[in-house]
Simulated assay, not measured.
Amino acid sequence: MPPDPAITVAGRPFRRPRWKLLLAQNVGLALAVVMLILSLVIYCVIYVAAQHRLPGNFELTSTVNTTMPLAFASIAQTIVVLTRGIDLSVGGVVDLSNAVAAVKLGDSLGSEILWSLVVLVIGATCGLVNGLLVTLGRLQPILVTLATLSIYQGIAIRVLPQPGGQIPQNYTDAFASITGPWSLLYVIIVGVLWWAFRRSSLGVGVFAIGNDETAASANGVAVRRARILAYVLGGVFSAISGLFLAASATAGDATTGNTYTLTSIVAAVLGGVSLFGGRGNGVGAILGAFISTMIVNILFFAHINPLYQSFYEGLFLVLAVVLVGSVGRLMRKAM
């Protein structure tokens, strides 16, 4: 039988160059980088045309601080989506953590640390409830998380019936400083944590479940444990999103997290995360969050009528998602 040309070349095993393998494995991330660069270029061009100067430190800092809550919400969504699930309760957990932070954070450093940890535990508990219902209750993730979204939002409104509360200035400075885009340091930290997660047994299990649950179980992956912990981690990152939102707004609002439910999904998809599970990157999801913010900025400085901004924003996002999916499939076939 003649050698398979796809496997051997001139009788020798065919090996693709390492850079092609890396690109094939990270097509979504590469596309997210390209889209972010393009959106930045378009933003700068429109900004110069409107303001007759380049964006400065204030614009950069404002953009970063605005994006951070969505960045963490997109990470939360990504971890769950990798298991072939979806978490519609992200916005509810953001609301609840935001409300608790606004009401309970005191002026002392000890109180801030204590209640920040409490908020993270609340987020983990919310994620645990989702994970148990989906995994042990064998219920559909979309139905479970849609129900818990309403529950968490209801509790959030009970904690903070109307916008208010107060976030200490030093807390705001630590998470959303107005002196510079220092919040990007948290992006670097998350990037390192994602690298560690991807190589941990839990990370391997999460990706394995998303690719083939039966095969993952046959290869010794604790499927139930991995899926439940994925939802727990999702809850923790949603809670972190709520803390960043409270810090940037310097107050609380039990309804502001509503938008993060859908935008976290959009950001994840823009970052190359597959809704079919098993493929994606947390760093790409963060890039997707920045792309979403840049689209909003572009529409604002293009002087689009506010009544039509939502229409154009949705249109651009749909086109971007379709482009990411189409180009990604073509590149993987070409590899």
Rank of each mutant, 00 (worst) to 15 (best):
P2S: 10
P5D: 08
T8P: 03
V9Q: 14
R16P: 00
L22G: 00
Q25Y: 01
N26A: 07
L29V: 10
V41M: 09
V41N: 01
Y43Q: 06
V45E: 08
Y47G: 06
V48S: 12
A49V: 08
A50M: 07
H52L: 15
L54W: 14
L60E: 02
T63Q: 14
N65F: 04
T66P: 01
T67V: 10
T67M: 09
L70I: 06
F72W: 13
S74P: 01
I75M: 10
I79K: 04
V80E: 05
D87L: 08
D87G: 09
S89A: 15
G91Q: 04
G92F: 01
V94W: 05
D95V: 01
D95R: 03
D95N: 15
D95S: 14
S97V: 15
S97Q: 07
V100D: 00
A102Y: 08
V103L: 11
V103D: 05
G106A: 00
G106M: 12
D107I: 00
S108H: 02
L109W: 10
G110A: 15
L114M: 15
L114R: 09
L114P: 05
L117R: 00
V118A: 12
I122W: 03
T125I: 13
V129L: 14
G131M: 03
L136T: 05
L139S: 13
L143T: 12
V144C: 07
V144D: 09
T145I: 08
A147T: 10
I151Q: 06
G154W: 05
I155D: 02
A156Y: 00
R158K: 11
P163G: 08
P163E: 07
G164Q: 10
G165T: 05
Q166P: 03
T172R: 13
I178Q: 14
I178D: 12
V187M: 11
V187F: 12
I188F: 12
V190P: 06
V192F: 15
W195T: 10
W195A: 13
W195E: 05
F197N: 09
R198E: 15
S200F: 04
S200T: 02
L202F: 10
V204K: 11
V204R: 14
V206W: 06
F207K: 11
I209N: 02
A216T: 00
A218I: 03
R225N: 02
I228L: 03
A230M: 03
L233V: 04
F237A: 03
I240L: 14
A247I: 03
T250S: 15
N258T: 14
T261Y: 06
V266F: 10
V269P: 03
V269E: 08
L270Q: 04
V273D: 05
L275Q: 14
F276G: 11
G277W: 06
V283A: 13
G284K: 11
G288M: 07
G288C: 07
I291C: 09
V296A: 12
V296H: 06
F301C: 09
F301L: 01
A302I: 01
N305R: 08
Y308R: 05
Q309T: 12
S310P: 02
Y312G: 06
E313T: 12
E313G: 09
L315D: 10
L315M: 12
F316N: 04
V322R: 09
G325H: 09
S326N: 09
V327L: 13
G328V: 00
L330W: 13
M331R: 12
M331P: 01
R332W: 05
R332L: 09
R332C: 02
